[in-house]
């Protein structure tokens, strides 16, 4: 397996405060890699550096061996990296299908075209992406009135518009009910398997992480403190201390049931 993404000593400081320090990892082809850690551990900062929103203080990011230094998010996107956001960033004034068409127009580099009507362009392609994420029946609905879970699925469809090789998903299931979470992650798993996409995602729901991730990395105070399979991470003493906790919640829970 070849590495899709590789970071080398990735670090970021904000005014002297170390947000991310010397983070090294690789994402292999077809891999679902989870990045977990407490709030403020630097997950989003990490993501923003991978996607070009933030410039690293030091360190490099390589995509298929190519240095991404100095590239803007839109340029990294054109190299085949898709992204979904923790707080969805869809176009509220458009319909569902227009949201997808917009990304397709961008992918086909016709942003400055002023001859054709936009809503007639790439309709079929957009529709098939919506079918893929199960949103075809809502194609003509106004994006501003979609349920939250549907917005997340729409964002996934948008992220697939440029046939990405790598997908970065920042808390893909935040704010969703447990059943929806499993559904969305199952969908993601199927899509990436069929299309041979690698995924790096952050997540707080440990059920989702332990069920779906092939490999898990734990970030704490800007540093990677663990990197391994579900089993290894679950039993790692440091991870339990800083992130997973002692599992008191579940113990007490059982006590109550037993009582």
């Amino acid at each position: 397996m070849t590495d899709v993404l590789k970071t080398d000593g990735l670090s970021k400081s904000f005014g002297g405060i170390r947000a991310v320090h010397n983070v090294n990892f690789t994402v292999a082809e077809g891999e679902l890699l989870a990045l977990i850690g407490p709030n403020g551990a630097g997950k989003t900062t990490c993501f923003n550096m991978l996607m070009g929103q933030l410039k690293p203080t030091s360190g490099k990011v390589y995509l298929h061996g190519e240095d991404l230094a100095g590239l803007a998010p839109r340029e990294i996107w054109r190299k085949g990296v898709g992204r979904t956001f923790q707080i969805t960033g869809t176009y509220q004034s458009m319909t569902v299908i227009e949201n997808v068409q917009m990304a397709l127009i961008s992918h086909h580099k016709r942003l400055f075209s002023i001859l054709k009507y936009a809503h007639k362009l790439y309709r079929d392609e957009a529709m098939s992406l919506l079918e893929l994420v199960g949103m075809a029946d809502q194609a003509e609905r106004h994006c501003a009135i979609l349920a939250y879970g549907d917005l997340k699925r729409l964002e996934l469809a948008i992220a697939l518009c440029n046939h990405p090789r790598l997908l970065l998903m920042d808390e893909p299931t935040a704010g969703m009910a447990p059943k929806e979470r499993i559904g969305l992650m199952q969908l993601t798993t199927d899509i990436v398997k069929n299309r041979k996409i690698s995924v790096l995602f952050t997540e707080h729901d440990m059920d989702v992480v332990f069920t779906h991730a092939h490999r898990i990395m734990v970030l704490n105070r800007g540093e990677l403190i663990a990197n391994g399979t579900s089993e290894e991470i679950r039993n790692d003493a440091r991870v339990q201390e800083v992130y997973l906790g002692g599992g008191h919640l579940f113990e007490k829970d059982e006590d109550q049931i037993n009582a």
């Binding site: 407490p38 709030n39 808390e171 935040a174 707080h204 201390e241 800083v242 992130y243 906790g245 919640l249």
Partner: peptide
């Protein structure tokens, strides 16, 4: 408890 680490959820409880 939404969106915070399990260990903080425990403190919250």
């Amino acid at each position: 408890s939404e969106g915070i680490a399990p260990v903080i959820v425990e403190q919250m409880a």
